[in-house]
Simulated assay, not measured.
Amino acid sequence: MMTQILPQLLLIALALVMFGVGLSLSAADFLRLREHPKAVVLALMLQMILLPAIAWGLAIGFDLSPLFAVGLMLLAASPGGVTANLFSHLFGGHVALNLSLTAINTLLSVVTMPLIANMALTHFIGEGVVPLQTQKVVEVMAVVLIPVAPGMILAKSLPAIANKLQKPFKIFSAVVLALLAVGAIAREWTALSEAAGSIGGAVLVFNLLSLGLGYWASRLAGLDKPMSTAIGFEIGIHNSTLALYIALSVLGSFPMTLPAAAYSVTMYVLGVVFGMLLRRLPG
């Protein structure tokens, strides 16, 4: 019974988190993105080109089995999601940039995920046909974007109330983050403990490189700290649920899910450490 109710509860909790994010946003935040096309282009290049190339290299460098290699490629091809927005919200990132990038990346993933998955399947296994997964993409878009709108409306119409709600919702967001981490560890513990020796190193390095490259490439490109923080989390915190869905529901392969399952644990731990490190860096 609990296993049937838990996904609905989690969905509600994430929607509330995104409502809290909306309390700190305005339409002007999104309009200002037109002044920073470099940030959007850089993030898309990192997400669409560099990360799959890194995953490909790690799969070969760590000599992963074909199924694990494809699973890692699916993870690299997955866009950012609710968790990336949450981390950015908690650690001073440009959340409007996160939301915009998540929307763009999620839409593009309708094409890029099947493309990258089929390339990986063909290279590592010798065959593969992954169809477009529009339903899952629409679900992600709904969870990420729809709850933000009421928060923004409240912030514009009743700013005093919105300001009072921001702190409680930030605390709530932190609690949700902790519960997600514990839940991910508990849910995948058995499978992860068995496969950790094979995939742990590659997943950990991929997670570290994703976070670091997202932030430092942005800084080197001349972007400010909030935007670089947003890109760091957008590139470094993937929607592993989408990768899990493709591996299990479309390809019917449980081993392919294990890189994403391992990542769903490491990203919470490394995300918090990375966020705390960023707080110590100069603006």
Rank of each mutant, 00 (worst) to 15 (best):
E194N: 06
L242Y: 08
G20Q: 08
T190N: 06
H94V: 09
M45F: 14
I235K: 12
P168L: 08
A84C: 08
V129W: 00
G57P: 03
I185Y: 09
G93I: 11
D29M: 05
T134P: 06
L258T: 15
A162M: 06
T229V: 13
P282Q: 07
F30M: 02
L220F: 10
P150M: 05
A160C: 09
L251I: 09
Q4W: 15
V70T: 06
V95P: 03
A178T: 13
T257D: 08
G128M: 01
L220D: 06
A43H: 05
F233E: 06
I116V: 11
I116L: 08
L64S: 02
A13Y: 06
S193W: 15
H238P: 03
L220N: 09
G61M: 01
G236M: 04
V273A: 15
V143Y: 05
A160D: 12
F19A: 00
M256Q: 01
L9W: 15
G201M: 07
D29H: 12
Q166F: 12
P150R: 04
L64M: 04
I146E: 07
A260I: 07
A174Y: 10
Y263L: 01
Y268I: 12
H89P: 09
G183D: 12
N239A: 02
I235W: 02
F254N: 07
I116S: 01
K225F: 08
A117W: 07
A186K: 10
F30P: 03
L281M: 14
L10K: 12
T229G: 04
A243T: 04
M276A: 08
S264Q: 01
V175Q: 10
T134F: 15
L165Q: 10
L25P: 05
Y245L: 07
V70A: 00
G80Q: 00
Q133L: 09
I185G: 14
A77M: 03
L281H: 09
L242T: 05
L23R: 11
F62H: 01
S264L: 05
Y268A: 14
T241M: 12
A196Q: 14
A103F: 13
V110Q: 11
G93C: 09
P131Y: 04
S24M: 02
N118F: 04
A261W: 01
M256T: 13
R187L: 10
A43N: 02
Y245R: 05
V273R: 13
L58H: 00
V272N: 04
G271M: 07
A13V: 07
A162P: 06
N207T: 10
L132Y: 14
I185M: 15
A39V: 00
Q8I: 15
L74P: 02
E234P: 10
L6I: 14
I116W: 10
A27K: 12
A55P: 00
D224S: 13
P159L: 04
I12L: 15
L108C: 09
L46K: 02
I5S: 05
M267Y: 04
I12D: 11
L31V: 13
V205N: 04
I12Q: 12
A186H: 08
P168F: 05
N239V: 02
L132P: 13
L72A: 01
L115E: 04
G232L: 02
S198H: 12
M45K: 02
G275V: 11
H94T: 10
L220V: 15
Y245M: 11
V40I: 13
I5A: 13
L99C: 14
L277V: 15
L211I: 02
T3A: 15
A55N: 00
Q47F: 07
T134A: 14
L51F: 03
Y215R: 05
L50C: 02
F169T: 06
A178M: 15
L16A: 04
A28G: 03
